[in-house]
Amino acid sequence: MKQHAQWETSLFELIRRTSVDLPPDVEQGLRRALAAEKRGSRGRWVLETILENVQKARENDAPLCQDTGSLVFHFHVPAGFDTNALSAVARVAVARATRLGYLRQNTIDSVSGEAYETNVAHGAPQFYFEQCARSTVDVRLIMKGGGSENVGRQYSLPDGRLQAGRDLDGVRRCVLDAIAEARGNGCAPGILGVCIGGDRASGYEHSKAQFLRRLDDKSEVKVLARLEDRILRDSRLLEIGPMGLGGSATLMGVKIGALSRLPASFFVTVSYMCWALRRRGALISVNGGLKRWLY
């Protein structure tokens, strides 16, 4: 790949921005959540602290959250673009961002228990590549912390315990169970990504891909949009509230997608994203120049 340095600069800037500056739609979601909490309540105190934190991270040019998470890059590239070179330069950018403290040393060898100094290791960062018809590269980055990752769940329907059958109300029951089980532990008020169908692996992948959607959008599938609304309303009544300390802002959003499935399988996969939905994107020209920011 030519213009290696320019590519590295653009991808580094994407990482920096994702770590320190929450996207506007998520910050707006936090403000809406704040308005829902009573004055003098714990929930309101939590959200005021969170909003102050968002502001400070931007001003201090420092990570919003110390768990800078796993880094997942989604690339759409023109036909024939060298994706090996692209992932190589992204790894260089990740290593530099780690050295400069935009990312924590956050990658552990699962066998030896040793920490990697650079966050570059087998399986880290993660890359998804797809070909697109444009002449520019579309890159989106999500950073997802471990606390929220740990509360994700997968259900196989029918589920006797939840009386959840193979229909959309069955899906609702599973998702409500996941919210109740997560409590505040994923750092509420979070955002849910849900996948109906798929297999065990693609279900998680598609549920997480929902986090690429803007917080204020709705599913284009009408019935899924209704399901998203209903679950969001239900979540308020659970009164889990910000950080699980009570209140109505249990979630900021519910995003549901669907994949086809086998006749024998009916998975419902729920991924939880903490309030700090660190998601940024950019259009980058093939020579590495940053053209414009997405989100």
Binding site: I50, E52, L64, G147, G184, C187
Partner: peptide, 13 residues
């Protein structure tokens, strides 16, 4: 004691 999760900047201060 329960602190605010993710508030890394406010708490670092």
């Amino acid at each position: 004691l329960h602190a605010v999760g993710g508030a890394a900047q406010v708490l670092a201060d």
